[in-house]
Amino acid sequence: MEPYKKHESIAALMNRSNVDTDQIIPKQFLKKVERSGFGAHLFHDWRFNDDGSDNPEFELNKPTFKGAKILVVGDNFGCGSSREHAPWAIADYGFNTIISTSYADIFYNNCFKNGILPIKVSSQQLESLMAEINANEGVRFVVDLENQQVITPGGNGFTFDIDPFRKGNLLSGLDDIGLTLKHVDKISAYEERHKKAFPWLWAQ
């Protein structure tokens, strides 16, 4: 996983609430055997017309939002089925930050496993951020995880809360596996004991 760095980026706005994981990545894409490449199908049913062309009405298709790393969305983002493909698709599309008032539990946890920072804000904060983007599409926000701060040119900046353990993992780019591998000495020591106790399990 890439370490999460302080960055300035376009903030894309999707003023929709209760966006569920089936909308994030519709189920017809779950049969793939790959893990990468889901970004091409992110929000598929909204993003594309039936003939496969881009739907110009869809927010993220606006040229002003191209290249955005920050996604500002309505309440309860990521509800519905627990599919891990949702954060895979979001990260693969290029987002590394989401700003909303609330997230579904499993989705929220899955974000951290995929290098995505989900920031929680109050309803008023969200409204003012949305207003700022609406007034100036393509506006760039600065996200500074180290100092738990978002800075906007319109002065709607704020500080946010985050679990210190998770923050550390994002900053260092440690995924769950990396975290476990920090204890690799203990795992190896366990295996040495295991080999003595159950030698037949180690016969190849």
Binding site: E84, D176, I177, T180, L181, H183, V184, I187, E191
Partner: peptide
């Protein structure tokens, strides 16, 4: 377990 845990176990032989 889920698919990301399958990866976890393959890489570490452990599971949180």
């Amino acid at each position: 377990i889920g698919t990301s845990e399958v990866e976890h176990v393959m890489a570490t032989q452990c599971l949180p």
